[in-house]
Nucleic acid binder design. Structure first.
Lengths: 150, 150
DNA sequence: GCATAAAGTTAGACAGTGCTAACAATCTGC
DNA sequence: GCAGATTGTTAGCACTGTCTAACTTTATGC
């Protein structure tokens, strides 16, 4: 009940055959991971940019309060994505680092795709943030191909 | 505290200037409405297909249990999107109908876009379900234009 | 029209995400 | 090295969304 839920964007295996229902289940599944993905991606970014990821910076970037971050970090630690010590900044585990990398990859592809479609960078950033968690590997491949054409 | 939260995909007005933070806030905002949007869209569909929307059908389609649907329908009623009477099927209010129509429109555009990109219909359906809630009006316009070109 | 099946509701558990308020630890600048 | 500022934690509340179990109501089939 406390483990990280694996990616099912590409192949949700359980549940009935109806594609609509499958779609809804896939989305619910994805939604469960969204926040964790945002966090690890951001943590990786902060570590890269400033050498460490502090709750206060995470909170500022996400636009939430520090106690909210603290609680969510507890969950991420439980799920094995990060390690942390009291009053210290946050580190990614190997698993967390891998997830962050994967997220960054997806984010980049979606962002480049939207921009190459003709979207302004600001809107592209906002839309990419929302879309990246819901894009199958197959779609991602098409996005990447499109962005590389031209 | 119980009203429906308006669409901020296009123009989140509050919060600081940092575009990344704005993006995160926009996404959180969007996430708050996702489930409601899924419900009203599905309810409209069921009413169209079978003349009425019963909790048991909603539950089956979404892949959740009936009590879950019941509770969520209470919320939607509180928010003025649907009306319902005990042990009776569900109806959309004008507001709900408008939202459903808007959701359907977005869904259609995203779906057609993905398919015209070359994605198989099954995957397109799953991805569209996740993406439709996170697409700005601007992006939607580009998607529509792309799907209509060719 | 009554017994049973199906559908719907209510209650209660539990986890997640957000908040504020109060407290604890750490860091900073003399 | 100590005072005050900053950062982090904990506790407690609210709401959502999911479930199961138990109950009520409605529909169905003789």
């Amino acid at each position: 009940m406390t483990e990280f839920h694996p990616d099912t964007r590409t192949a949700p295996l359980d549940g009935p055959a109806d594609p609509r229902t499958e779609a809804f289940q896939g989305v619910r599944e994805a939604r469960r991971n969204e926040l964790a993905e945002d966090y690890v991606e951001l943590i990786a970014e902060l570590i890269h940019e400033q050498g460490e990821a502090r709750p206060v910076d995470i909170a500022t970037r996400l636009g939430v309060k520090v106690p909210t971050v603290s609680k969510t970090l507890d969950r991420l630690a439980r799920e094995g994505l990060i390690t942390r010590a009291k009053y210290r900044s946050v580190f990614l585990t190997d698993t967390g680092r891998a997830l962050a990398k994967e997220c960054r990859r997806r984010h980049e592809i979606v962002l480049r795709f939207l921009i190459s479609l003709g979207l302004d960078p600001e809107t592209a950033e906002r839309d990419a943030e929302g879309i990246e968690h819901h894009v199958s590997e197959r779609t991602l491949a098409l996005f990447a191909a499109f962005a590389n054409r031209s």
